[in-house]
Simulated assay, not measured.
Amino acid sequence: MHYDLGLAGRTVAVTGGASGIGLRCVQTLAGAGAKVAVLDVNREQLDAAGAPIRAAGGAVLALDLDVRDAGATEDAFARIETDLGPLDGLIAAAGVARSAPATMLTPEMWDLVIGVNLTGLFYTVQAAGKRMVARGRGAIVTFGSTSSVGGQAGRAAYCASKAGVVGLTRDLAIEWGSYGVRINAVGPSLTDTPMVRNGIPQKFLDDIVADRTPLGRMADPQEVADTCMFLLSDLSSYITGTLLMVDGGVTAGAFTAQKGRDFSSKAMLAQGIYRERD
Rank of each mutant, 00 (worst) to 15 (best):
A55Q: 13
R24M: 14
A156P: 11
D220Y: 08
G9C: 01
F255L: 12
A153W: 05
M218Y: 01
I114P: 04
Y274V: 05
I80G: 08
V250M: 11
L232E: 13
R135L: 00
V186E: 10
P101T: 03
G31Y: 06
E74D: 13
H2F: 14
F255T: 13
P194K: 02
G138F: 02
L168G: 08
A157N: 08
D234M: 06
T240R: 03
M132Y: 04
A55C: 12
K259R: 14
T256Q: 05
I80V: 10
L46Y: 03
G136W: 00
P214D: 07
T82M: 09
I200T: 14
V36W: 01
C159T: 15
G129D: 04
T119M: 00
S265I: 03
T28N: 07
Q45D: 13
L84V: 10
V165L: 06
Q222A: 14
A72C: 12
T227C: 14
L244Q: 11
P52V: 00
T169M: 07
A94V: 08
I183P: 11
Q258E: 07
Q152T: 12
I273V: 15
C25H: 13
M268W: 09
S264Y: 15
P201H: 01
I53D: 10
T193M: 06
T124L: 00
S147H: 13
A92Q: 10
A219N: 07
N117K: 04
Q258P: 08
G167M: 02
Q126C: 04
G180F: 01
T124H: 07
D207Q: 15
N42M: 03
T119R: 06
I239M: 14
V196L: 10
L63T: 06
D111C: 10
V209A: 00
L235E: 12
G16F: 08
R54H: 14
S145P: 07
A8V: 14
V224G: 04
L87H: 06
G115V: 04
M109R: 05
G95R: 01
G216M: 01
A62L: 04
L172T: 04
F204M: 12
I91K: 11
T256E: 02
G115H: 06
T191A: 10
T227I: 11
V36E: 02
Q258H: 07
A163R: 14
T256H: 02
D47F: 04
L172M: 01
I174D: 10
A157K: 05
N117F: 00
V41T: 09
G216E: 02
G260R: 03
L61E: 07
S147T: 11
G115D: 05
M218F: 00
A219S: 09
K162C: 12
L269I: 09
L205G: 08
I114W: 00
A97P: 09
D278N: 14
G9R: 00
F122M: 09
Y179D: 12
A59H: 13
V250H: 13
S189K: 09
N184D: 02
G144P: 11
I21V: 10
Q271L: 11
V60H: 00
M109K: 14
V41G: 06
A127M: 03
G151L: 06
A267S: 14
A34Y: 07
Q27N: 02
F77S: 08
G31Q: 07
R79I: 08
D206R: 07
V186M: 13
D69C: 03
D262A: 09
